[in-house]
């Protein structure tokens, strides 16, 4: 995808990533309020969900729209474990991840051999059915429309809400970093390479004998595991989980994040999550307009910036690298 990068460009990459990490680590010192910490925590959690989604939709060509369903499924699993069996939150997170993975296989095994449109439909149907399951839950096994509440919230120690939230933020940030590393490894593994060649030229990749179906199932499972885990973490952060998390508007906001950030790019989903979440906070008072704006922004991005906001930033970085190279070239005597 990226052009052969010069050594300068690779060095710049490292500097920028280091800078971003430093900002992320130091952010709570500046944004030292419960409000901002909550925003930051949600950014971390949604960034994980979006990274996992981008892995399948942007890289593996699996048009799955069951992402929120898998997310919420992780949340409900841990909530039920916590309420009924008294499991600890971390154990619940694992359980949530496993259940989401199993669900992804139920969807994936019949559909991943088929055309993208089928996967899209089956996963969207899955989402809708899952939502209905809770809304029509008449015997209140899952708490009906209100969902499940009053189960254990995260407690990483600390005094006062700001301190508590700061610690939760660092845990969420650590999870985001771990999830991103895992996804980075997958994208740069031989399998990831195969997927990219499949995405860029299906005929070529098939002629090279890429066993598409198995790879797709595997990546879908990994993505679902991460997503389910994030869902469970989210549930314990809020101390509640409800079907409103499956609202169509939320699915669309999530979609807007990866599209606007740049789907099929590694940093796009993170950037998109930050941008859209911050915009979302600014537009809080305009409930009606907010979805409209995200919808319009999504269309505009797909048409004018197919690689999302990451693309102009990457171009800027490349120009910077070229400028540095040029200056060095002036200093060093030409090689030939």
């Amino acid at each position: 995808m990226s052009a052969p990068t010069s050594r300068t460009s690779a060095m710049l990459d490292r500097v920028l990533i280091g800078l971003a990490l430093a900002i992320a680590v130091l952010a709570p010192l500046v944004l030292h309020s419960a409000y901002w910490l909550r925003v930051l925590i949600l950014i971390c959690i949604f960034a994980i969900v979006n990274q996992a989604w981008n892995l399948i939709i942007g890289y593996a060509g699996i048009w799955s729209f069951a992402q929120l369903a898998l997310f919420v499924m992780g949340g409900y699993t841990t909530a039920l474990m916590s309420l009924n069996l008294g499991w600890s939150p971390w154990l619940g997170c694992i359980a949530g991840a496993v259940v989401a993975t199993l669900a992804s296989m139920v969807i994936g095994i019949p559909s991943l051999r088929l055309k993208g449109a089928y996967v899209f439909l089956l996963t969207l149907a899955f989402h809708e059915i899952f939502r209905n399951l809770f809304i029509l839950d008449t015997d209140q096994r899952f708490g009906g429309q209100y969902g499940l509440q009053r189960f254990e919230k995260w407690n990483f120690g600390g005094e006062g809400s700001v301190e508590k939230l700061t610690r939760t933020y660092y845990v969420a940030l650590a999870l985001l970093i771990v999830a991103s590393l895992v996804i980075w490894r997958i994208i740069h593994s031989p399998m990831g390479l195969a997927f990219r060649s499949l995405r860029d030229s299906e005929a070529y990749a098939l002629s090279r004998g890429v066993p598409e179906y198995r790879f797709k199932l595997l990546v879908y499972a990994i993505s679902a595991f991460i997503t389910g885990f994030a869902g469970a973490f989210y549930a314990h952060y809020l101390g509640s989980i409800s079907p409103t998390n499956l609202d169509f508007n939320i699915l669309m906001t999530q979609m807007a994040m990866i599209v606007i950030g740049g789907w099929g790019t590694f940093f796009g989903p993170i950037l998109g999550t930050i941008v859209v979440k911050l915009a979302d906070e600014q537009l809080r008072d305009f409930e009606q307009l907010r979805t409209l704006i995200f919808g319009a922004a999504m269309v505009a991005t797909v048409i004018f910036l197919p690689k999302g906001l990451v693309a102009p930033l990457a171009a800027l970085k490349n120009r910077l690298a070229a400028a540095i190279d040029a200056r060095r070239g002036d200093a060093d005597p030409p090689a030939a």
Binding site: M252, M255, A256, T291, G295, M298, V299, V302
Partner: peptide
């Protein structure tokens, strides 16, 4: 994605 976006609008 783009028609979905237009649909939302």
């Amino acid at each position: 994605i783009s028609t979905l976006g237009v649909g939302i609008v």
